[in-house]
Design a protein around this nucleic acid. Structure first.
Length: 917
RNA sequence: GGGCGCAUAGCUCAGUGGCAGAGCGCUUGCCUUACAAGCAAGAUGUCACAGGUUCGAACCCUGUUGCGCCCACCA
């Protein structure tokens, strides 16, 4: 008998006013009314009085997630169950959250990754680990600065009107007001993060970590300042790193220009004609016979009146274009290298805004205006040799604002990545860090093995300012966090800030208190899993590896890198604003519950593969949650219990032994899938076990057991309680809300969050499994027959069961109940007899049997069985097969042949027994 | 230019030598007292194409075609 014990919350949700008068309320209207009702829940059930058995009318038949979820989450947080204890002697399990941008809001990609991280930490917590999932946000340099600048623009101001200090203050104010919306959304999603440890990349501790590592790298010669060609965004007005440039194939125009005159002229090709204003040489390949006579001479650079040398450099590809290249060292990375090798002047002809600064008619023109103006002027002079022709080439764009990048000579700060990247590569190569799925390891190596030095300075105001001071006599001093910056006349700090990924690269240890030797750092570093999208392997993952290994004396930042795909729409299309297929997960969470969104995402999570999601699928997940709800409701109404020891197998019927055997197998499978980050298979396994085996078969069978009463029913109540208890525990990491709501009611215990993870007891009962398979086979066969014969599901049919020498006799009552068979009363005339697994079921259909339909059906089955027999027999007659195939395979084929033979005999017998039409 | 991946039911995807699967969708019947957000029964496939290896290929190999992604300083 169910009694409500302890402080568990009662089931909540609206009571559906069950309308039973089907005459006044036709069926269709009834379901519509239900839908409407659940979308706008009004009534809620009062908590059940303690110790009273709920009646069906009191328990809502539909789960309303929106009501339960917020309340449950607050309870978890208030009880401090997500807070990790560094002093605990439990083994640690740590995940740091990929810090979302402070400007961001929760999208399906976050919901997806957060679901998986939450599932991992919740399970580990249940398994007895000191589980820490550490939350926080990234200050997101450019993105945030842009946002606030936009706001200022609305007021007709620019950041320069405010000045640096006031602007940064304004960004902080913005952050306090609008930033971090995503944190509230994470609560809605159910993220079990430790809010007491929330961090921000610009908070005091993390800023100190940034300064510390900068100083250390600087002192080690791994950070330096140099003038190089960098990627310059003329809109953001800052340098950006190579990976912040998106290359897109664009139709450009390749124009050929003649430099010099007559014999001594040379034709070059370019897509950026305006850069010719900064040309300081023409380069040809050293072995190119066509131009050998020109090397060492000078040609006139049109429009400028300058003369520039023709030089030989092996970089030039003689097969491309004319084989001659104009060299603009200040505006092209290759040309810069050529210029360095040949000691050419570096002539800058554009300013920060990509406006021409070179004296002459083009001064003041934007680069694109200048491009056509320059081509026009050249054409007037007859310098355009061939008409410009279309040419597809990759053009770099700013990943933030999509402006075309201008390569530009500039003094910037750099990280020398060589030694750091080598260590980062080795850590994966020698297995100290595992990349999952392993197919994506190649992408990681491709990056760390070929990485160029990293430009880390940004000409922004929002971010960690570079801790370097310049003295009046050209001194450069890098200042550590505990040092006084130099003061006195002429000393100024570098005005640049650091790339936002510099601070996020420290995330796994800076959040734990580094550079201090904190208990958190000792307990929780290295972290266990880094779970993130494969799109930020280079931006973030590789950099954390480099910095982690460097700062933590070679200790890896995480042991496993679990890479996820991107979330797509239900047609597998990328979600984007321009397609109009972007979904706000909050909408779905309100409509179907967080559990439904979480389960759908987890169910699609094949490692490293993109995840499609559609509203229909979320609905299906909601249905699953509701199914669990109702199954538990059934259990409660029938006195399922988790109290007392599980009865010994000898005291249990085959049905109970079967489900316990299956449960333990499923626990083992679930554990394997969790450990391997196979969330899709995990969810599928639990879904089918729960729905197909427990709900559709076990629950149905247990109705008969309960009806019979006695000690077996009593034992069965305990087993049903056990199975549901374990199932709810297994599902809790993925769908924490509905499981919590049900489990606390079922068990009377405080919370699944702090409950134990179920273990595989090792109990298996193959005999019981086979027995129940036979029950299912028989029931399915007779159901099929009933359906084919057009019998109403509820129609009772007199029948005799001859269960013969099968293990089925103990299940006779259950079989009768499932098949709506009643014992024949009085005269019985068998009009149809079915065989399954050695048992026969004879039905009295009082002459209503549709013989033709059944004959057709059986004939079809017979043909299938005969085909199977022919195939298996042929195989077993094949000498080569017998000689070479492994024994289990041969045995399997033999079994199949035997089965086919038995089927043929059975079907033939049934056909023979069919009355004449 | 270099590299990686994919092609299986109407849709989205599992399956990786031994009986072709799941979810959603579809068809038929059903108010069956836990659940119509449900139950029962059912249909649906040139496993992209062409060769090869093998007793046996959706799976391994070669090629073809069509998609997708990542990297890239050839003007």
């Amino acid at each position: 008998m169910y009694t409500c014990q302890g402080p568990a919350p009662a089931l909540s949700g609206p009571v559906r006013q069950v309308q039973t008068d089907s005459k006044r309320h036709p069926w269709r209207r009834y379901t519509d009314a239900v839908t409407e009702h659940t979308q706008q829940p009004t009534a809620t059930s009062a908590p059940l009085a303690e110790g009273r058995t709920p009646t069906p009318a009191e328990l809502p038949t539909q789960y309303v997630p929106a009501e339960a979820e917020g309340k449950l989450y607050e309870r978890w947080v208030e009880n401090g169950w997500f807070e990790a204890d560094a002093a605990s002697d439990k083994p640690p399990y740590t995940i740091v959250i990929p810090p979302p941008n402070v400007t961001g809001s929760l999208h399906l990609g976050h919901a997806f990754q957060h679901t998986l991280m939450d599932a991992l930490t919740r399970r580990k917590r249940m398994q007895g680990h000191e589980a820490l999932w550490l939350p926080g946000m990234d200050h997101a340099g450019i993105a945030t600065q842009n946002r606030v600048e936009q706001q200022l623009a609305g007021e007709g101001k620019s950041r320069h009107d405010l000045g640096r200090e006031a602007f940064v203050e304004r960004v902080w104010k913005w952050k306090d007001e609008y930033g971090g919306r995503i944190l509230g959304q994470m609560r809605r999603l159910g993220d079990g993060v430790d809010w007491s440890r929330e961090r921000f990349t610009m908070d005091e501790g993390l800023s100190r970590a940034v300064q510390t590592i900068f100083k250390r790298l600087y002192d080690d010669g791994l950070i330096y300042r140099a003038e190089r060609i960098i990627n310059w965004c003329p809109r953001c007005l800052t340098a950006i790193s190579d990976i912040e440039v998106d290359h897109e194939e664009r139709d450009g125009e390749l124009v050929s220009i003649r430099y010099g005159e007559g014999e001594r002229s040379i034709v070059v090709a370019t897509t950026r004609a305006e850069t010719m204003l900064g040309d300081t040489a023409v380069a040809v390949h050293p072995d190119d016979e066509r131009y050998r006579h020109l090397v060492g001479t000078e040609v006139e650079l049109p429009l400028t009146g300058r003369r520039i040398p023709v030089i030989a450099d092996a970089h030039v590809d003689p097969a491309f274009g004319t084989g001659a290249v104009k060299v603009t060292p200040a505006h092209d990375p290759n040309d810069f290298e050529i210029g360095r090798r040949h000691d050419l002047p570096m002539l800058t002809v554009m300013d920060d805004h990509a406006v021409i600064t070179a004296h002459g008619p083009f001064q003041g023109l934007d680069r694109l205006e200048a491009r056509s103006a320059v081509v026009g002027a050249l054409r007037e002079q007859g310098r355009i040799v061939a008409e410009k022709r279309p040419y597809v080439h990759a053009v770099g764009h700013c990943s933030r604002c999509h402006t075309i990048i201008e390569p530009r000579l500039s003094m910037q700060w750099w990280v020398k990545v060589g030694p750091l990247a080598r260590a980062a590569g080795d850590a994966v190569r020698d297995g100290r860090v595992t990349i999952h799925p392993k197919e994506l390891a190649g992408r990681y190596f491709q990056w760390v093995d070929n990485m160029h030095d990293w430009c880390i300075s940004r000409q922004l105001w929002w971010g960690h300012r570079i801790p370097v001071w310049y003295g009046p006599d050209g001194e450069v001093r890098c200042v550590g966090p505990d040092e006084q910056p130099p003061s006195g006349p002429g000393w100024t700090q570098d005005t640049d800030v650091l790339d936002t990924w510099f601070s996020s690269g420290l995330w796994p240890f800076s959040t734990l208190g580094w550079p201090d030797d904190t208990p958190d750092l000792a307990k929780f570093y290295p972290t266990d899993v880094l779970l993130t999208g494969h799109d930020i392997i280079f931006f973030w993952v590789a950099r954390m590896m480099m910095f982690g290994l460097y700062a933590m004396d070679g200790e890896v930042p995480f042991r496993t890198i679990a890479l996820t795909g991107l979330v797509r729409d239900e047609r597998g299309k990328k979600m984007s604003k321009s397609f109009g297929n972007v979904v706000d997960p909050l909408d779905w969470m309100e409509k179907y519950g967080s559990d439904a969104v979480r389960f759908t995402l987890a169910r699609g999570a094949n490692p490293g593969v993109d995840v499609p999601i559609g509203e229909d699928w979320v609905q299906a997940s909601r249905n699953f949650a509701n199914k669990i709800w109702n199954a538990t409701r059934f259990a409660l109404l029938n006195g399922a219990t988790v109290e007392g020891p599980l009865p010994a197998p000898e005291r249990l019927g085959a049905t109970d032994r079967w489900i316990l055997s299956r449960l333990n197998s499923v626990i083992a499978e679930a554990d394997a899938y969790y450990d391997d980050y196979q969330f899709a298979k995990l969810c599928d396994t639990l879904y089918h076990f729960a729905w197909d085996e427990v709900f559709d078969w076990y629950v149905e069978l247990s109705k008969t057991t309960f009806a019979a009463g006695g000690p077996e029913a009593e034992a069965s109540r305990r087993v049903l309680g056990e199975v549901l208890d374990a199932l709810l525990r297994l599902l809790h990491p993925v769908i924490p809300f509905v499981t919590e709501e049900l489990w606390t009611t079922l068990t009377g215990r405080p919370s699944l969050v702090i409950a134990d993870w179920p273990g595989d007891s090792g109990f298996r009962d193959r005999a019981a499994e086979a027995e129940l398979a036979a029950v299912q086979q028989l029931v399915t066969e007779v159901r099929r027959f009933r359906h084919d014969q057009g019998l109403q599901p509820g129609q009772r049919v007199p029948a005799r069961l001859d269960l013969g020498a099968t293990p089925l006799p103990p299940h006779e009552e259950a079989i009768r109940a499932l098949l709506r068979l009643q014992p024949p009363a009085g005269a019985f005339s068998a009009t149809a007899t079915l065989d399954a697994g050695g048992a026969t079921v004879s039905l009295d259909l009082s002459g209503v049997i549709d013989v033709a339909a059944e004959r057709k059906r059986l004939t079809k089955d017979l043909a299938a069985a005969e085909k199977e027999l022919a195939q298996t027999a042929a195989k077993l007659a094949n000498e080569s097969f017998l000689a070479k195939a492994p024994e289990p395979v041969v045995a399997k084929i033999r079994t199949r042949r035997a089965q086919a033979e038995a089927d043929i005999a059975r079907i033939t017998a049934q056909l023979d027994r069919l009355p004449a039409a």
